[in-house]
């Protein structure tokens, strides 16, 4: 039983870090670049994707025995689209301002390849508990990535974070950061940073192994 629990934890953590959908798998780039011009938008987008991914993974995994292989992709899409549409209406009713900012990108969650990818690669062939844990991890990883991008862009682009001014009224905004090129630049720099960390870690490990073997 203890091992099962560890497995579940593993499924969760891998989405957050080791297999992060954005920084490692580079999936779901469309919302990633389009709606991260402020932290609030990023958060709303992340939350919407979170709901859709966890809901669809749960349903797909529970129904996996009844879905014939030939029509599985269409069924997944129907399930995902249902969740997306419900999310769309709910957001419009609850937070109309943010809904307007996100615009067409809420319906476009349907074609977020990360979501369909999780259904095909994981939820359709694992137990419900595992699938939900995996979805939670992946969605949290996606949310984390969106938030970090949104925060960087909002801080530089407007001098604010979640709408709160950080540097006073005289801050000179970096307009490019709110525009689409800013999304590409920030994402590129973050990817660069991550691979730099990875490289350093690998080198460190190599060096450690070397030292150890020398010590013997």
């Amino acid at each position: 039983m203890a091992k099962r629990k560890e497995d579940l934890q593993q499924e969760f953590i891998k989405g957050l870090w080791r297999d992060n959908p954005v920084f490692v798998q580079v999936l779901g780039m469309c919302p990633m670049l389009a709606v991260t011009n402020s932290a609030v938008n990023a958060l709303a987008m992340g939350a919407a994707t979170f709901f859709v991914l966890v809901g669809s993974s749960f349903l797909v995994s529970s129904l996996r025995r009844w879905i014939p292989k030939q029509v599985r992709i269409s069924t997944y899409i129907i399930i995902i689209a249902t969740f997306v549409t419900v999310t769309d209406f709910t957001l419009e009713a609850l937070v109309p301002k943010i809904h307007k900012e996100l615009g067409a990108f809420i319906p476009l969650i349907v074609v977020n390849c990360m979501i369909l990818g999780r259904q095909e690669a994981f939820a359709s062939r694992n137990s419900v508990r595992m699938a939900v844990m995996d979805a939670l991890g992946m969605a949290a990883g996606f949310l984390f990535a969106l938030l970090s991008l949104g925060a960087v862009r909002e801080i530089l682009g407007e001098g604010k974070l979640f709408g709160v001014s950080l540097f006073g009224p005289n801050f000179e905004p970096w307009v490019i950061m709110i525009l689409p090129p800013g999304g590409f630049l920030t994402l590129g720099l973050i990817l660069l940073f991550f691979s730099w960390i990875k490289q350093r870690k690998q080198r460190l490990e190599q060096r450690l192994a070397q030292l150890e073997s020398e010590a013997r």
Binding site: S74, I78, T82, V86, F89, P96
Partner: peptide, 30 residues
């Protein structure tokens, strides 16, 4: 196959209509 898909479609349609109807008043009022 047809049964599965139409069942899924039916269910999905039902849920969407439900969500639409329950949020419509708030949205139009806003």
């Amino acid at each position: 196959l047809v049964t599965t898909l139409s069942f899924a479609g039916l269910l999905s349609g039902l849920i969407i209509v439900l969500a639409y109807e329950s949020t419509l008043p708030t949205i139009t009022a806003h």
